[in-house]
Simulated assay, not measured.
Amino acid sequence: MDSSTERQCQQLENYVGGDKRMAEITGSRAHHRFSGAQIMKIVNEEKDVWMETERVSLISSFFASLLIGKYAPIDLTDGSGMNLMNIETEKWEQSLLDFIFPGLENKLGELVSPMTSIDTVHSYWTHRFGIPKDCMILPFLGDNPSSLAGLSLLPTDIGISLGTSDTVFFFSPTFKPNTDAHVFSHFAPNSGYMAMICFKNGSLTRERARKMNGSSWEKWNEIMEKTPVGNDGFIGFFFDEDEIVPRKLKGDYTFEMDEKELKEKSPEKFARAVFESQCFFKHLYTQKMGFKKSQSSRILVTGGASRNTVLLQMLSDVFEMSVYTIEVDGSAALGGAMRARYLHSKTPLKYSEYYPCDNVSLACNPIPENVQTYRTLFSTTFKNRFDAFITE
C-alpha cells in the first residue's frame, strides 16, 4: 500500500486543525491513498507534470468518461473519499482545494449525484458494439460503495466482509465522524451516510491461530470447545500487520499472560482470544460510529470466512443479532446494474425498498447464555483494556 504521501497527509491535517477536524469536514482523516494527498504530492514534487494536467479523474469517473467520450464528473459518493469534499454540504471544500493548489476546482470539475444520468453512450460504442445510442450512463462508483449497492443492505443491517482484511459497513441517518473509520455520502438520495471500518488483520491472524493448534477448519469446533465462552476473562489484541483500527504497531498484546507460555501451553486459549477480540473490536467500532440496533437488525456476512460457523456464532452472540450469509458474485458490477435499473424505473420507492435484501440464508441466532457472558466481558474488561491500550 502506498504510504509515500505521509508528509502531505500531515500538512493537510495541520492546515485544518488536526485529524479529528479533517474527519469532521471530509468524513475521514487524511489517508495516504486518498486523492487530496496524492494530488498534493504531484503539485509539490512534479510541478511540470501538474501544470500540463488538464483534468483530474478518479478511476471510476475515468471509466465513465470512456463511455460518454468526454470528461465525466465525479460523483458525491466517491468524492467523499478524497479528503477534498465537505461531506455535509456535498460540495468541494474550497479552503482545502486552495491550500493544495489555487484553481484545483477547475481540474476536478463538478460533483454530481450518483443517481443521475450524466449523458448517453458515445457513438463509438454504438457503431462498434451495437449499444443503443440512447443508452444512459450513470456516474461510476468505487468498488466499496458499488458493492454495497449490490448487496442492498437494509438501513437496519450491518454488513461484514471477512477476508484478509475484515470490513464492517452500515448506513447511518446522521453523520458521526471518527478518525479510525470512514464516512461516505450515500449513493441513494435521502438515505444518509455510509460508514465503513476496515480492520487490516483478519483471516491471516485467524489462520495463524488455526496452525498453532494443528487443526483444520472442519474440526475447529473441537478446538473452541476446549475453552469456555469468554475465555475465563482473558483478552488479548493480535495484529500480524500494523493495524489501522486502532492505529497500533503489529504484535501480540497478551497483557497479564506471558506470550510464550500462552502460545506453547495454551494454544486453544490463544485461538479463542484471537476470535473473541476480533468480534469485540467490530462491535466497539460500530458503536463508536453510531449504529443503532433495532428489533429487525441483522448481520449479513460475506467473504471467505463466512463459512466459519464458530466465527459466525461468536459474532451473533457478541452483537446480540442474528447472522445471515449472503453470496453475491461480482457485487460491485451488480451494484452498478442495480442502480441503473433503479434510476430507469422512476420508482418513488427508496433504494432499500425497491431492493429488499432477501437473498440471504440464516446462519445462526444468539445463544442467551453466551450473550450474557459477552455482554459483561465487553462492557468491563474489554473496554477498560482498550481504553488503556490506545493511550499507551
Rank of each mutant, 00 (worst) to 15 (best):
I326H: 02
S352H: 13
K350P: 00
N359K: 15
R339L: 15
L349M: 10
V323F: 11
N365Y: 09
S345E: 15
V360Q: 00
P366D: 08
L315M: 15
T325S: 13
E327S: 14
L315R: 00
H344Y: 13
P348T: 04
R341L: 13
V328W: 06
S316G: 14
A332P: 07
V318E: 08
G335I: 02
A363P: 05
P356L: 07
A333W: 03
S331H: 03
E320K: 13
C364I: 09
L315W: 04
L362I: 12
V323P: 04
M321V: 14
V360I: 15
A332G: 06
G330P: 11
N365E: 15
D358W: 01
A340G: 13
V323E: 05
V328Y: 08
Y354F: 15
A333E: 08
M321G: 04
A333F: 09
S352T: 09
A332D: 12
S322A: 15
E327N: 15
G336A: 15
I326P: 04
S322L: 08
P366C: 09
G336F: 09
G335R: 02
C357W: 01
Y342V: 02
K346W: 03
V323Q: 05
E353A: 10
L334M: 12
L315Q: 07
S322W: 09
N359T: 10
P348Y: 05
R341S: 13
Y351E: 00
C364A: 13
F319M: 14
C357E: 01
K350W: 05
R339W: 00
